[in-house]
């Protein structure tokens, strides 16, 4: 089975793996995500109704309310958080959210993860080394 390796910058350290959930739309916290269920609830979002729980979330970055970190903080306490997050655009919302979620997080990749990772791929994240290993579902 073929694997692809991406390199990026550690945001939050740790090692984790799981099934990828990929969106090209930025993600909201407060007002767009329900920490009790882990689901996206933003009405016009392509992931609306889909749970982020235990996924490796691959997304452009965060948008919306300053409650972003608090809602993903609550997701950690409720056990509905993603297993790891990979994103492109560093903002205070997503960086603080990653820190308080306490899951491995990587950004600043050598190639765009949105072009390479598809929903359903298996993704191993070694955030301490900044290495992401992707096994394609179709391979």
């Amino acid at each position: 089975m073929s694997t692809i390796v991406l390199h990026g910058r550690k945001v939050v350290g740790g090692v984790s793996e799981g099934e990828a959930l990929v969106t090209r739309e930025t993600v909201s916290g407060w007002g767009g995500f329900d920490p009790r269920t882990g689901k996206v609830v933003e009405t016009r979002h392509e992931l609306c109704g889909i749970s982020l729980k235990d996924k490796v979330l691959v997304f452009p970055g965060a948008k919306g309310s300053s409650g972003w970190s608090q809602y993903f903080h609550l997701a950690r306490l409720a056990g509905t958080a993603p297993k790891a997050i990979l994103y492109n655009r560093t903002t205070t919302k997503v960086a603080l959210g990653a820190v308080v979620m306490r899951v491995p997080a990587v950004t600043d990749f050598d190639s765009d993860p949105l072009d390479i990772i598809e929903t359903g791929d298996w993704v191993k994240v070694d955030a301490d080394r900044g290495v992401v290993e992707i096994t394609k579902k179709s391979a």
Partner: peptide
């Protein structure tokens, strides 16, 4: 160091003060 996205944008653009969108923890 302000939370509240609507206040942050007002603080930066209209007042010329400097803040990112902070969160509850920060």
């Amino acid at each position: 160091a302000w939370m509240e996205s609507s206040a942050v944008i007002y603080c930066n653009a209209v007042l010329g003060a400097r803040t990112n969108t902070e969160g509850r923890e920060s």
